[in-house]
Write a protein that binds this DNA or RNA. Structure first.
Lengths: 153, 153
DNA sequence: CCAATAAATGAAACTCTTTTTCATTTACGT
DNA sequence: ACGTAAATGAAAAAGAGTTTCATTTATTGG
């Protein structure tokens, strides 16, 4: 994943290329997971001085430019992922928070067509979020069952 | 929609049948829309003295009993709807905010099976939210195009 | 390279939703 | 009706996100 394409996009839209913006982009690019503003703030703070407000503002800007996408976590908190154009299907691991963008769900257009036919709605946009356990967290769940049957926490 | 089936469910699970609980149930039953705790609080306050905390606690209890379901609004706020067992698909009108619960999406199990096969995830739960315009708001949008072409707001 | 300046930042204060604490009230079996 | 545990309401606190404003910084032109 190239940071240059995103920094160019900023410049072309008349925005300045600042240290916080570069840092947020870099962190998002390197992340395997959806990150909350607080997590990005923590990560960024380890390398240079930055305010949480700036993280929020930067994420809002990047979302507006279509570079990142907001996802809703269970408690209503927001997290952000790099936007994969056209893919609004997210698979989120309840164990470790890792996410996968799912491409090419062939059934989706049929499903939407059926809903439109049945309800008369005109569907403009959809969000599909699937929650479950990733392969590695499934393993850990099994191991925990065996080794810690006395632990009732 | 009968309130008795829900009050019975409370009693059968060892919970007391209090005025706030009855009121929240009644408000949920009568509502055409997803309601936020604040909205339920406001509605309830018009009829008797109740604390917002109690609304939160009652909704948490009703959700745990499977009587209501939490939906995430765009700004991260939570709203609640009466649970339609097994239906976690919501169709929301961008125009008027009305929602429809969609039953029997036959494609969904296939879709989930495909995702599991492709990713190795075990999907426990899903949320499908479709956004668009309901028939009546589509009409209004068309009328606005005709009658107000000079209005650039 | 340096100065001017408009954009961007950080700190603090604030708003709003949700949770916790705890003393008071209420539902319900006896 | 009484006693008791459950439930409630008020207040305070916790947490996410936003607003304000003085300071800093990226960029443009000399």
């Amino acid at each position: 994943m190239q940071i240059d394409q995103f920094t160019n996009q900023l410049r072309q839209n008349g925005y300045r290329l600042t240290k916080p913006r570069q840092a947020v982009l870099q962190i998002m690019i390197e992340s395997e997971r959806a990150l909350t503003p607080a997590e990005i703030y923590q990560e960024g703070s380890e390398h240079f001085r930055v305010g949480l407000v700036t993280i929020y503002r930067t994420l809002a800007l990047l979302e507006q430019l279509g570079i990142v996408r907001q996802v809703h976590l269970h408690d209503g908190e927001h997290a952000y992922v790099l936007a994969t154009p056209g893919h609004y299907h997210t698979l989120i691991c309840n164990g470790c928070g890792r996410f996968v963008e799912i491409a090419g769900l062939a059934e989706m257009p049929h499903l939407i067509a059926e809903v439109e036919a049945r309800t008369g709605f005109k569907v403009a946009e959809h969000r599909l979020e699937l929650y479950g356990l990733c392969p590695s967290c499934q393993q850990q769940a099994i191991q925990r069952q065996h080794g810690a049957s006395h632990d009732t926490t």
